[in-house]
Amino acid sequence: MRKLGSDFGWLWSAYAVSTYGTWLAFGAFPLIAVRVLDSSAFAVSLLEAAGLAVAAMLAVPLGPWVAYRRKLPVMIATDLVRFAALASVPAAYALGVLSYGQLLVVAVVCGTAAITFTAASGAYLKSLVRGDRLLAANGRFEAASWAATAAGPPLGGALVGLLGPVVTITADAVSHLLSALAVRRIRSGD
């Protein structure tokens, strides 16, 4: 990473930690819906599909919106939004007020924030890394993404088995807070 610079290192770390957190908690929402809220199979399917479906619909208008915004504040804001949304789940669970509707809203908010973060980080990467190093930088992002996709769900399953799905959601929330802190360390302007 030395050749790519410390700012790239912070951006890559932010992306990697939030991606791992997301994949770590991949199966936690359906488990909470079934085990804690006694949701039906249809409700669980809707929960899985709704976040991505709504986020995909919002991706088209979000693209131009992100294009005309400063990327670092957008990335920090989306990480903090994901942190707050995800942290609301264990808080509501602890208070005994967790509902299916809340899980649905959190899934939609997190899906939309994830698409926004990815768009902003991809655009920022192009301004951060010189053209001759961009292939290597994109390769590191892809490697982090595929490693998280492969390792996250099994590790998350083990974490759910050991500590439960609510703790796994908490770990995902913390990953986004750590990501925001890493983005905050970037010194290059956008």
Rank of each mutant, 00 (worst) to 15 (best):
Y15S: 06
A16C: 14
T19K: 03
G21T: 05
A28G: 01
F29A: 02
F29Y: 12
I32G: 01
I32K: 02
V36L: 03
S40H: 09
A43L: 05
A49M: 12
A49Y: 09
G51N: 05
A55T: 06
M57Q: 04
L58H: 06
L58Y: 09
A59F: 13
V60T: 08
A67Y: 15
R69D: 00
R70A: 10
I76C: 08
T78D: 06
D79A: 10
D79K: 07
L80P: 07
V81E: 11
R82G: 04
A84S: 08
A87N: 05
A92W: 01
Y100D: 00
L103C: 06
V106M: 03
V109I: 10
C110Y: 09
C110T: 12
G111P: 05
A113P: 02
A114V: 00
A119T: 13
S121H: 15
S121P: 02
A123T: 13
L125V: 05
L125P: 01
L125D: 03
K126G: 11
S127Q: 08
R130N: 15
R130L: 10
G131F: 09
R133Q: 13
L135G: 13
A137E: 01
A137H: 14
N138V: 13
G139S: 00
R140S: 11
R140F: 12
E142P: 12
A143T: 05
A144N: 00
S145Q: 10
A151H: 01
P154K: 03
P154F: 09
